[in-house]
Simulated scan of single mutants.
Amino acid sequence: MPAAVAPRVLNRPHSVTADVEIPPGGAQGVLLCQGTNAGGWSLYVKDGHLHYAHNYVQRALHHVASGETVPEGRHALRFEFEPTGAPDMAHGKGTPGRAQLYIDGRLVGETDMPVTTPITFNPGGMACGANPGSAVTPDYQAPFPFTGTLHSVTVDLSGDLIVDAESEMRMHMARQ
């Protein structure tokens, strides 16, 4: 889906929950991602583990993986982002925060991200079940389709959005 209609996850608390079925022998692939190798994020399964990667405009890659494997069967795989500070939009830095991974409501991995993308991913389309185009992270090769059954993916944006109208206006004017 194009960035203009994709859920706006930047600079706010949010979660992504994938209802999946892992077949005997395991599964791998992207559950949901946004952006490209120029910047974005990806929630995926690789080598039996749940992963989340945030590519901060090709300057840094923040990654967390589950400490245990995703078992066979139907499961809720979840990523949560909780801001831990304020963004510094004037210097190109989005909200720092804590990234957490859950399997069936049980915390299985977490890390602190000192910075995230501030305003938008360019290009910023969102994709479910694969990562079309260039891979968000070098951890896999695109399109890296999910090989299990993906029943649904829910993005929860109930947290407050932090907006810097002046920075957003500069970005839009630069594109003109």
Rank of each mutant, 00 (worst) to 15 (best):
V64G: 01
Q34F: 04
H91N: 15
F144N: 12
A27I: 11
Q58L: 10
E110W: 11
T111G: 06
G129V: 08
G94R: 07
I162K: 14
H51D: 03
L101W: 13
A38K: 15
P24V: 10
V45L: 15
A53C: 14
V108Q: 06
M173I: 14
V163K: 02
S15C: 06
G35D: 01
H75T: 12
G133Y: 04
A90M: 11
I103K: 09
P118Q: 03
E110Y: 10
Q34D: 01
R12F: 04
G67V: 10
V30E: 02
H62P: 04
F121E: 01
Q141I: 14
E168C: 04
P96R: 01
H62D: 05
T120E: 11
Y56N: 12
A135D: 05
A174N: 00
V30W: 06
V5W: 00
G40D: 01
P24K: 05
V155P: 07
M1D: 06
N131C: 15
P13V: 03
P7N: 06
N11Y: 04
V70Y: 08
P87Q: 10
G159E: 04
P114Q: 08
R98G: 01
M171E: 01
R78T: 15
V115L: 04
R59H: 07
N131P: 03
E72T: 15
L161C: 05
V57E: 06
R175S: 00
D104S: 05
G26L: 08
A99N: 09
P23W: 10
T147M: 08
G159I: 03
S152W: 07
S15E: 03
R106L: 08
H54A: 03
A135C: 10
A60F: 01
D112R: 08
C33R: 05
M89Y: 15
D19C: 00
D88V: 13
G35K: 03
D47T: 09
G97V: 14
H54T: 02
P96F: 09
R106A: 09
S152C: 02
G92H: 07
I22L: 14
E168V: 09
A18L: 10
L150H: 12
V64F: 01
A6G: 04
T120M: 13
G97I: 14
V5R: 11
G133I: 05
R170M: 12
P118M: 02
H49A: 11
M126D: 05
V5E: 04
L150M: 12
F79M: 11
F79D: 00
A86Q: 15
L43T: 02
A3L: 01
T120I: 14
Q176W: 03
H63G: 00
G109P: 12
D47C: 02
D112P: 04
M1A: 14
V108W: 10
D160W: 03
R78P: 05
G125V: 06
L150K: 12
E68F: 00
E80Q: 11
P138V: 10
Q141H: 11
